[in-house]
Every structure is written in structure tokens, then in C-alpha cells.
């Protein structure tokens, strides 16, 4: 764990559980990572691995009442968010830390105009200067929605999928947050629109100099805009690497599997590669490494205890027993 005070965000051993009738579900089980200033970090993993819960935890918005942050520290600008009051958190949300949800069709309130929803980050953080409507129009223009002057009064159902996603991004970036979490911002979009949206996000990041955590299960998206990748599996970070290292020399068997699963254009294959087996049930986690039941290189120790985080080189660490000897 490399700690330096230039980090914008640092999670230390974050544990988040859901308490259900069937028992405790450890959705996030000891996650530590940091995000530097102006960095774009990709958080990748399968559905249900805890990516979204991790990001909601950063905003202290884990679904209530079942979900609870059990332990850990969330340092944002060297201040522990776990010690903040609900009102202090509210003031941070939408101002210094913001988030874009994945499905714009359900993330927008269908009964309020796009303008009313865009104006909220300004209104509730006392950022209104002059006309709120003009601010919303400017914001829509910033995310390249055509004819923002008339579009601002539209309702979400009058927007196309791509435009809705742009409007959602606009809500996220309204107050130029230091940290923007984008939860699969392109999943609901078709490929060409997705590419436009990613390009837009990168442009905005350059302009606002904010840091971005991009949650996705799409490695192509990661390759396009991220500088660093965090691979998450069953509630834990298994690999933390720069984008270059991740694609050139992935260390964790799961990361290797993920990269192999991506079909390559121009290289025809009979059958796409897939990792055998299923992710473990959150109710019954394996004793040792969570990936061990699916891992082709698993050894005895892998089934017995969880591997420590091993530094391979600067900015590249992995949680895997294969590297414990070196």
C-alpha cells in the first residue's frame, strides 16, 4: 500500500455488509486503494463483485437499512468521511464528490424536467449566480446536448438514451467535483454513442482536472481512458496496476482470464475463452483466495488462507500466492 498525502481518496480496509434474513452478505470485504489527483482509475470486475457498493460507500450512500459500512476508513482529502455527520456528507455530495449512475432512464426522475434536475446541484449547494435556468442551459451545452435552450424544459422521456446519459453526466459535473465516480456510464448505450460519451468524459476531466473512478466490466472502455486499473473479485481488490502493466503483464490469474476473454478483431477463434465456474456465492465465501475454486494454478495454500497484497513493482500489486515466493 503506497500512501502519500497527494492522494485525493484513500480507502483503508473498507468492509461493507448487507444484513439480510439469510444472513450477512459481505459485499465489500477489506478493500484498500487510493486515487491520485487528476487520475482516471478503472474499477473492473464481474456483476455483483462489489464495485457499485464500493462506490456508493465512498459517498456513504449504501442502500439502507440492510446495508452498512462495517469498518474501514474513507479518506477524502485526508479527512475521514466516516467521521462526518450526515449533513456534512450532504454538503460534499454533488459538490466535491459526485457520481453518475449507469441507467439514465431510471436515474432521472420522469416527473421533473431535465432543467429542474440539473439545477439541483447548484440550488442545494448555494452555487446559483444569476439565472439558474441559464446555468442549466450552459451545463447542457457543456455536455454537447444540441439546442440546450429548448431542451432544458424537456422531460427525461423526451431525451434519447445518449442524451439522457449526457444530462446525467452534466448533473455529476455541475459543481466541478474533485472526485467523479462513473458507474458503468456507457453500459446502457450503443457502441458509437458510448464512444462519444467516453470522449466527452475525458475532455471534461482534462478541463475540470477532477479525478475519476470508472466502474465497468468492459476492458475496452478501460483501455480507452484509464491510467490505472483495479481488478475486483468477490468483494476484494485482486490486482492494482497501471494500464500498461495490466495489458502487458497481468499478474493475477483472474486478470489474465479477463484479458483472454476479450475477442481480438482479426484473430478468428473457434470459441471465446471463458473462465470456468461461477463467482462464489456471497453467502458462502471460500476459506482462502476467493478465486481458488476457479483458478487453474491454485495450490494447497490458496484454499487455506487469503493471499496478502504483494508489490511486484512500483504501482503494481497483486493479491495472489503465486507471487509470494519472490
Amino acid at each position: 500500500m503506497h500512501t502519500n498525502n497527494d492522494n485525493l481518496l484513500e480507502l483503508q480496509d473498507l468492509k461493507v455488509s448487507f444484513f439480510t434474513k439469510q444472513g450477512e452478505v459481505k459485499a465489500v470485504d477489506g478493500v484498500s486503494f487510493s486515487v491520485g489527483k487528476e487520475e482516471i482509475v478503472g474499477l473492473v470486475g464481474e456483476s455483483g463483485c462489489g464495485k457499485s457498493v464500493t462506490s456508493l460507500s465512498i459517498m456513504r450512500l449504501v442502500p439502507q437499512p440492510a446495508g452498512k459500512i462495517v469498518s474501514g476508513r474513507i479518506l477524502f482529502k485526508n479527512e475521514d468521511l466516516m467521521t462526518k455527520s450526515e449533513d456534512q456528507m450532504r454538503q460534499l455530495r454533488g459538490d466535491r464528490i459526485s457520481m453518475i449512475l449507469q441507467d439514465p432512464m431510471v436515474a432521472m426522475n420522469q416527473l421533473l424536467t431535465v432543467g429542474e434536475q440539473l439545477g439541483e446541484p447548484f440550488r442545494f449547494h448555494d452555487k446559483v449566480k444569476g439565472s439558474l435556468r441559464d446555468m442549466c442551459i450552459a451545463l447542457l451545452g457543456k455536455v454537447k446536448v444540441p439546442a440546450p435552450e429548448s431542451r432544458v424544459d424537456d422531460y427525461p422521456f423526451q431525451f434519447s438514451g445518449g442524451m439522457s446519459q449526457r444530462a446525467l453526466i452534466a448533473m455529476g459535473i455541475a459543481n466541478n467535483p474533485d472526485l467523479l465516480i462513473a458507474d458503468e456510464p456507457t453500459t446502457a448505450l450503443d457502441v458509437s454513442i458510448a464512444a462519444q460519451v467516453l470522449k466527452l468524459m475525458k475532455e471534461i476531466q482534462k478541463e475540470t482536472r477532477s479525478s475519476i473512478i470508472l466502474i465497468t466490466h468492459d476492458l475496452a472502455t478501460v483501455a480507452q481512458i484509464c491510467t490505472r486499473v483495479l481488478v475486483m473479485y468477490a468483494g476484494r481488490i485482486v490486482e492494482n496496476a497501471t494500464i500498461k502493466n495490466f495489458y502487458k503483464k497481468p499478474a493475477h490469474p483472474y486478470s489474465k482470464g479477463l484479458i483472454q476473454s476479450v475477442p481480438v478483431l482479426g484473430r478468428p477463434v473457434e470459441r471465446l475463452f471463458s473462465i470456468d465456474g461461477q463467482p462464489p456465492s456471497l453467502f458462502e465465501m471460500p476459506e482462502g483466495c476467493r478465486f481458488s475454486p476457479r483458478c487453474s494454478r491454485a495450490e494447497k495454500i490458496c484454499f487455506e488462507s487469503y493471499p496478502p497484497e504483494i508489490m511486484l513493482e512500483d504501482n503494481h500489486s497483486v493479491a495472489c500466492w503465486l507471487y509470494a515466493g519472490n
Binding site: L61, P63, R90, G94, V106, A107, N109, Q110, F124, M171
Partner: peptide, 27 residues
């Protein structure tokens, strides 16, 4: 209250009474 637009409103820092009475109750 479970819907995404309510989460989104909270993400924007909308105060809870406004989330409940405007965003959730209207729907």
C-alpha cells in the same frame, strides 16, 4: 425510495426532506 432517481438526487446533495417529498412522493 428504492429507485435510482432517489439515489441520484442524494448523490447531488439534495436534502432528505426534498428527496422524500418532491422526488419520491411525486412518483
Amino acid at each position: 425510495l428504492k429507485s435510482d432517481y432517489v439515489v441520484m438526487a442524494r448523490i447531488k446533495g439534495v436534502p432528505e426532506f426534498y428527496v422524500i417529498l418532491v422526488h419520491a412522493f411525486k412518483n
